[in-house]
Design a protein around this nucleic acid. Structure first.
Lengths: 353, 353
DNA sequence: TTTAGCACTCCGTTTCTTTGAGTGCTAAGC
DNA sequence: GCTTAGCACTCAAAGAAACGGAGTGCTAAA
């Protein structure tokens, strides 16, 4: 069912205002907006309708409305006005990039820092090898006193190993079975394909030694993720605390902790088959800890078989238009930067004008 | 003036208790301690004396006492009991290190993460080339419309350049003078030697183009710091928020912001000529934002001309004994790890016992 | 020199009240 | 049939007042 133009206008206004103020928006505030031709009573009716439809929420009876996740979604998809970057903004982004990218090594950190600065939100920056590494072959060696050695050969021909303590007694046969199961189910998979379903399937098949599966699976995924050349940095943790929604220390802690614990590690996977800018509103995030934050992210090209991604994490009430615009521009500039042959060692001689 | 044994005992007890509880400590609590043979009135007198001497402070008249920075200092230097690591602790540190250090590349991040885990505080980890890089030679090129190009040749024979906008009009002569001053005053210096005094001296000598000096100095210091191979990582931001003193978002934000802004960048310099573990209590920190936090840090050997450092940042009320012990042990284990020829590609075959 | 006793201070908490922004609904107006 | 003015009602947030109790400093006795 389509919303009437007026409803859309009201919804847009509510979201806009809430993004600006972080306070529930009342009917009066809306009807006082410059191009709003109706009285507060009318707006009130519209808002009640939008609430019924699930686009707005009411923190409590006598408060204004705030957008629901569905409301944000609609806003992002259809309602929000384009944000046009000013000359100043483009200039400052470009000069920041040119200035700081002199050395390649700690690049991801630099990028994350710059993105964070540009958006005033915590930012993430990832470079990952396309078409990830996989495991060619698993071997398990029963190693005396209650432990096994896991040996993996990767598609890159690296060999990685790990000593695992046995939580239970397992016989030679159990381990052999487990090895067979691993080789059958988990070879040729990239890090992104290690899902909860896979875990269950393998555990079911592994029988007595099934208890080892979670450890092995996690270790393998982690190894592939890193061997995939994934290099990721997060910057601007502190900016989260500047936002009114994170004056609540517990909330802030939850989100910051999730950063340390790689809750963002699967964002690149989400972007895998996407183009342009992707917005994840609140509960659309897979990671539990991010259920009431939003994520905006964009790909960029590093060349050399590497895929770059930048993104920010913020409150669901985030200035999507502005953030999206700045992020896209950032990605564009970075792509251009990396497309250049190499940074010149010396600038052109000063031209005469 | 020496403190009586009893005063020392009281002071130690106050610090110990405050470290544990984060609440001002009253005379009653002290005299109820197992081996405290005096009444609360006596303790009260002792505490009043310790307050006069500047070792304790009173948040307000009717509250208990908390240690002053001087009190912590004394505690760290003389009073605190050795913390003996349990087998469990050493084991878990060692296995964490062995397990995670499979790949060398993102090592500093890993180390920081592990240290943070082991201490439950934000941690920093730095690897820096010993005997830092210096600038061999500066050149300034006047580049048409109000800008100059700064070209530096480093002791590593790298060449770095930067375009600088002129805030004022400067003539060829001014720039020449500036160039001469830079070459005279700033060649051969490592990043650590770029101090506020140097800045003033150079600015004074540079005359008309003096306005450029701060920019140049900062850029140079930054370049050297990085080219020095300094590689640093911070982890565990979120743990700060778990501490009662940082339930106050503004305080937490100040500290976390300082992490993003390299307030920790000069810690390695502080360690330069130190050995063992160094503790900086509250105001002993140079960085303004860390004036009411404490820092504990230790060096470790990476070999290969690299010097490692690990450290943690926490409230002045921090368990110095425990943190110091864990940090030292960590540093030891890391040194050992790096002293090994190379990580074995496969572990030894399981031994029979 | 130590300790029991006591008056005093002052913070943190709880409880109660007030205030006002915002709502839904009804009935009148265009 | 929309739109709007009016009104009674709700409820969180802010303020005021009262309370309780932990801790102190001081005095006087042991």
């Amino acid at each position: 069912m389509e919303l009437s133009e007026r409803k859309k206008k009201v919804l847009r206004s509510v979201v806009d205002l809430y993004i600006r103020t972080a306070e529930p928006v009342g009917s009066k505030a809306i009807c006082e907006l410059p191009d709003m031709k109706f009285s507060s009573a009318t707006i009130r009716n519209e808002m009640a309708a939008l609430t019924d439809m699930g686009y707005l929420e009411q923190p409590h009876t006598s408060a204004g409305r705030i957008p629901s996740p569905a409301g944000y979604r609609l806003y992002v998809d259809e309602l929000m006005a384009d944000y046009r970057l000013s000359m100043d903004e483009t200039k400052s982004i470009n000069s920041a990039i040119e200035e700081k990218m002199q050395r390649f090594d700690q690049m991801m950190e630099k990028v994350a820092k710059l993105v964070s600065q540009a958006t005033d939100l915590p930012a993430i920056s990832v470079a990952s090898r396309q078409g990830g590494t996989t495991v060619k072959r698993f071997d398990l060696i029963l190693a005396g006193a209650g432990s096994v050695i896991l040996v993996m050969m990767l598609s890159t021909d690296e060999v990685v190993n790990k000593l695992i303590k046995l939580p239970v007694n397992a016989t030679e046969t159990d381990i052999k079975l487990l090895g067979a199961v691993l080789n059958a189910a988990m070879t040729g998979l990239t890090a992104e394909e290690f899902t909860a379903e896979l875990l269950e399937k393998v555990m079911a098949a592994a029988g007595a030694a099934g208890a080892l599966v979670p450890v092995i699976l996690e270790f393998t995924a982690e190894t592939l993720r890193r061997s995939g050349g994934t290099n990721m940095a997060i910057a601007g943790h502190a900016r989260l605390l500047g936002l009114p929604e994170y004056r609540d220390v517990d909330k802030a802690q939850k989100v910051l902790t999730s950063f340390d614990e790689d809750a963002l590690a699967n964002l690149p996977a989400v972007m895998q088959n996407e183009n342009g800018t992707k917005v994840l509103v609140g509960p659309e995030n897979v990671a539990q800890e991010l259920k009431d934050t939003s994520v905006v992210m964009t790909k960029f090209d590093i060349g050399d078989g590497l895929q770059g991604m930048i993104g920010v994490v913020g409150p669901t009430r985030m200035d999507y238009a502005k953030v999206t615009a700045r992020l896209s521009y950032f990605a564009e500039s970075l792509s251009k930067l990396f497309a250049k042959p190499e940074q010149p060692q010396l600038p052109e001689p000063a031209e005469k004008e």
